[in-house]
Amino acid sequence: MSDEFVIEARGLAKQYGPHVAVDGIDLQVRAGEVIGLLGPNGAGKTTTILMLLGLTEATRGSILILGKDPLRRPLEVKRDVGYLPDSVGFYETMTGRENLTYMARLAAIPRGVVGERINSVLASVHLLEVADRPVATYSRGMRQRLGIAELLMRQCRIAILDEPTSGLDPQSTQELLDLIQKLSRGGMTILLSSHMLDVVQTVCHRIALFNKGRIGFFGTIEELAAKIGGGTYVIDVEAEGIDLSALAATVDGVKNVMAVNGHWQCEAVRDVRPQLAQRIVAAGGALRNLDLRRARLDEAYGRYFREVHQ
């Protein structure tokens, strides 16, 4: 992951008559990041995606995708951005290969490399054997993988996936998540809009919580959990040869220390693992485990929206 921002949206807003769909959001995404776009239906996720793609004009605000404005330089932006919509549609009577070939021609991929590239991406999404069957015979999971194959074929730098796992069986979901992680490892930046919180937790580095057209929270799941838990980070510590309750109290930021089931649990206002480790080792203790408890997104999400609605 690099520090370069590949997506920068500032004060982005979209209004349909009197209805405000997106209300001045800021979004900055680094290259290689996987960002989860979360929120209830009608919160503004899809409208934001369409504005990022240049398919809908923003009422106000600015967007830069890889340093380019999608409205002024739409072709350049579209060349680098792939989009897999919710319930991706294909031309049913055409085969998987023909669908990809058609999109390759529209994307102006040189004819000389199209065939080879299509074979390669179809193999990577495990569709090579059924490539010459009409898409009408494909299952939903196969269609989603064909959509991913299109993003791979176009060698996009940014992929926007809208509900890619909805309606998929567990095995297909896992296959798709593996593919998304593979794309991310390959350096692709991914925006993933989903209601499936376990999916988001599995693959996303950061999340943006949309609510009533605004981004209420943008950060890691741990930061979200800390925010809604009154800024509390929970750290599990297993150490021998020291009294952690006394030791941890001297670490700046620690609020509380408890013994729980044979180990210690520290509550702190920030991630104090480095300071704790240093103190334990300096005091001659044997540090066995130091773990920032991974917040569960479904819990954090539920609490966040309960608090927002109160």
Partner: peptide, 10 residues
């Protein structure tokens, strides 16, 4: 449902 994919091409 092919319109958004079609228009997402350059």
């Amino acid at each position: 449902r092919t319109m958004s994919r079609l228009l997402a091409q350059p």
